[in-house]
């Protein structure tokens, strides 16, 4: 999954059931910052790239407030694992698993994502 970000004609794709759904050009992703994508069934995904070019995608809805804003949070690394902090009340979510790091009973969907 590690890719060089200079490759501009690559597309970011999310795995939905059996299909890979194309979200945007890889170049639309700024390392350390997310974008929101609208999925065919009306759900929203938050898609991120870290500084090494690794991609992540989780549900965009902040389960604590209901607002669709996780793509607008700040990302970071916590004990070697990537996370995003909700911009509203700052709870952190593991970008690989969707697990909330501040409340073990909460988890959001994590999507498989690739650039191809």
């Amino acid at each position: 999954m590690t890719l060089t970000l200079e490759t501009t004609d690559l597309k970011v794709r999310l795995r939905l059931a059996d299909d890979w759904f194309t979200v945007c050009d890889l170049s639309a992703l700024l390392p350390g910052r997310g974008v929101a994508a609208l999925l065919p069934d009306g759900r929203q995904a938050a898609v991120f790239a870290d500084r090494t070019g690794r991609l992540y995608a989780i549900d965009n809805r902040d389960p604590f407030t209901g607002a669709a804003v996780l793509s607008r949070g700040l990302t970071g690394t916590h004990q070697g694992r990537p996370f995003v902090a909700s911009p509203l009340l700052k709870q952190r979510f593991d970008l690989e698993s969707g697990q909330c790091l501040d409340d073990e009973t909460v988890r959001v969907t994590a999507y498989e994502v690739k650039a191809a």
């Binding site: 069934d41 009306g42 759900r43 604590f64 959001v108 969907t109």
Partner: peptide
């Protein structure tokens, strides 16, 4: 939210 109830659980909170 705007999604069917079962998907809300899966898609976001399990709280």
């Amino acid at each position: 939210g705007l999604r069917p109830a079962d998907e809300i659980l899966e898609g976001s909170a399990t709280r």
